[in-house]
């Protein structure tokens, strides 16, 4: 049992929270715009990279690094929304936004490679990934932090969604764009706000995953893919669905890694995606069909 907890449950939960954080950002953006942001991996890395540049390269205080990185991230996210996302909202075709967000991610990655000449760098201020022994159970602060942050973030956004007028407006846009425009809710404002929220999720995700990841302008496709699978499982337009989606992806992936070997993780993920496509194209909690993507 302890073996199962140590080898599957704990790393699975941490991996699931990571996938869930990516999924959360996808859902936030997708439900108001119909666009999946393929540049999200770069946005995630922008925060730790910004802190490194200011504090490691320029030798300024870390707090200042955080402030600068947040401002840069917000500016980049708004720029992406304007040039690569909004023009394609409701175009009814996936190809244009796939290319525009992918293109944006390539440009961003090239710019982000400049400070460290594309070399991956360790982030020295991350939460410790050292395992502690709690009565036979091995767990690190980094694992606890990412799981707790993920659950709190979903809870906070769900409350925002249901209890605030702004949240209600975003849900209205997600459910009916013409109906929302007809009562004065601007689709542009909704997509800008969604982009900023997704940027905030990226910032938190970035600072958490650098406990176990080197900072680099290329955050592998697996993060995006696992995040997408988690979003598809939960429902592409369901915020709370990402809890189920994230942890299913994490546990299934870790089970495959532990009992079959690392090579089987992505095969397992792809199988999960196929099962969702075939049995519940709207995901567990969603309305939007993944087949539309």
């Amino acid at each position: 049992m302890t073996d199962f907890i140590n080898n599957v449950l704990i790393p699975g939960a941490a991996g699931g929270a990571t996938a869930g954080l990516f999924a959360l950002a996808f859902v936030v953006m997708y439900r108001t715009t119909g666009v999946l942001n393929f540049a999200h991996g770069q946005l995630v890395m922008l925060m730790p990279l910004g802190v490194l540049v200011v504090s490691d390269l320029w030798g300024l205080p870390v707090v200042l690094g955080l402030v600068v990185a947040v401002l840069v991230l917000a500016a980049v996210v708004l720029m992406e929304e304007r040039v690569a996302i909004r023009p394609f909202v409701q175009s009814g075709h996936a190809m244009p936004w796939i290319l525009s967000t992918l293109g944006f991610s390539v440009v961003l990655a090239e710019l982000m490679a400049i400070p460290y000449r594309a070399q991956p760098v360790r982030f020295p201020w991350g939460i410790s990934a050292k395992a502690h022994d709690l009565g036979g159970i091995q767990v690190s602060w980094a694992e606890i932090a990412i799981v707790v942050a993920f659950i709190l973030l979903v809870a906070a956004l769900t409350i925002f969604d249901r209890r605030t007028t702004t949240g209600l407006r975003l849900r209205a846009v997600a459910q009916d764009k013409d109906g929302a425009a007809a009562i004065g809710i601007s689709p542009g404002a909704a997509s800008r706000l969604s982009a900023l929220i997704a940027g905030g999720i990226a910032a938190i995700t970035g600072l958490l995953i650098v406990s176990t990841q080197l900072v680099s302008p290329e955050l592998g496709l697996t993060f995006l893919f696992n995040g997408f699978v988690a979003a598809a499982v939960g429902g592409l337009d369901s915020l709370h669905g990402v809890i189920a989606g994230g942890f299913i992806v994490g546990i299934v992936g870790q089970t495959a890694a532990t009992y079959m070997g690392g090579n089987y993780v992505q095969i397992a993920m792809f199988s999960v995606l196929l099962v969702v496509y075939l049995t519940r194209p709207h995901g567990l909690f969603g309305r939007a069909s993944v087949r539309a993507v």
Partner: peptide
């Protein structure tokens, strides 16, 4: 004000 063809109410609200 515009009451759209097909109603367009927000179904989950």
């Amino acid at each position: 004000g515009h009451v759209l063809e097909g109603r367009h109410v927000f179904p989950d609200l």
